[in-house]
Nucleic acid binder design. Structure first.
Length: 360
DNA sequence: AAAGCGGGGAG
DNA sequence: CTCCCAGCTTT
């Protein structure tokens, strides 16, 4: 007997909304009313910033970054006029630094092409760099309360369990199903802002990947996975590849109390972030030649200082930190900067560079 | 369809 | 240790 297709009409929207209005976390970018008055008025710029930061990042991690960011750039115009260097520095530690540059470019596009106003419809929001289907729907619904659907990791997990979706949630066919359900439900909810945030909030605090708190779930009476005793098995995801092990060598090039720093390329890992010259191998003998060619500097034989590992999603990187002195030569213009380790606060540095600096 | 892109929280 | 996070873009 074929399984019945998931039906959005089975979802208890009112119960979810009641739960969310009682149990939502107070977040600095989340619009909120108290006593019929806005305590936090919907601010489309704030919502856009928070959603950019929240991509693949837990909300609790985002909050302090958000506070600092909007203090530095209170309006979309401030962000549009900002130096990329400063934007990246405020993003330092959050990861996925392309998001910061996309957000910066989005701010300029809003000022130049949208009359300084964050677009109101998901269709217009999608034109902004770094804004995909999820972020467009989130800004449209949270900032403007328009019924645009969203599917993030939380929504996918809640729906996979509630509707007992047994196919991998990252398969295109399943994603289409999820977006269809999200669309039907947000349309029917008559409360897009609270409904979308409510499903995510449930996923983040109750319908969690592990240690699911079904006892406190407003949907457990009619949840298909709960009825079948299969909550822990869902959602299914396609397995991901293991990280590749590689070795990088950092050259701490010293002269007169300062070290040489350069900016990374605009593409790839840690794009546009700064670093001490770092080679993507462990051939220290080739380093001297590289530095001579790229910077016009003759350096002494690099000596090992220490080593450490850094984990990214796709690589396990063994960093070998070495130190050397400049013997002769002048730095080619625009190819780097000499900095004492005490004055690096305006240079955006990724985690491994900060670790290396600590070790020097 | 698959890969690249960070860093940290939580079990 | 493993898994996953209010995903997007490029190939």
């Amino acid at each position: 007997m074929p399984k019945r297709a998931p039906n959005s009409a089975d979802f208890p929207i009112a119960a979810l909304l009641d739960w969310y209005r009682q149990n939502q976390r107070e977040l600095p970018f989340r619009p909120r009313k108290r006593g019929g008055r806005w305590e936090i008025k919907p601010n489309p710029y704030h919502v856009l910033v928070s959603e950019a930061m929240a991509q693949q990042t837990q909300i609790a991690t985002v909050v302090p970054y958000f506070e600092r960011f909007v203090e530095a750039f209170p309006t979309v115009d401030d962000l549009a006029e900002a130096d990329e260097q400063r934007v990246l520095t405020l993003w330092q530690g959050l990861g996925y630094y392309r998001r910061a540059r996309n957000l910066h470019a989005a701010a300029r596009m809003i000022v130049d092409g949208f009359d300084g106003q964050v677009p109101k419809t998901a269709e217009q929001l999608l034109k902004l760099p770094g804004v995909g289907r999820y972020t467009a729907g989130a800004v449209a619904s949270v900032a403007h309360n328009t019924p645009a659907p969203i599917v993030d990791g939380n929504v996918a997990r809640v729906f996979a369990r509630y509707f007992l979706l047994e196919e991998a949630i990252d398969k295109p066919a399943t994603l289409k199903q999820l977006w269809q359900l999200a669309d039907e439900l947000v349309q029917a909810s008559d409360a897009p802002r609270d409904f979308n945030q409510g499903v995510m909030e449930l996923g983040a605090t109750v319908c969690t990947p592990k240690s699911t708190k079904c006892l406190y779930c407003p949907l457990h009476d009619s949840c298909a996975a709960h009825a079948a005793g299969r909550v822990a098995e869902l959602p299914v995801k396609t397995p991901k590849k293991k990280p590749v092990a590689v070795t990088h060598t950092i050259l701490a090039i010293h002269r007169n109390g300062k070290y040489l720093f350069e900016q990374r390329p605009a593409k790839g890992l840690w794009s546009n972030m700064w670093q001490m010259p770092t080679l993507e191998d462990s051939d220290v003998s080739a380093a001297t030649e590289t530095i001579k060619n790229q910077f016009g500097l003759s350096i002494s034989e690099p000596e090992p200082v220490s080593s450490f590992t850094h984990q990214t999603t796709h690589r396990t990187i063994q960093f070998a930190l070495t130190r050397c002195e400049v013997k002769s030569g002048r730095l080619h213009a625009k190819r780097g900067e000499w900095r004492p380790l005490s004055k690096l606060d305006d240079l955006p540095l990724a985690k491994p560079q900060l670790t290396a600096i600590d070790l020097l």
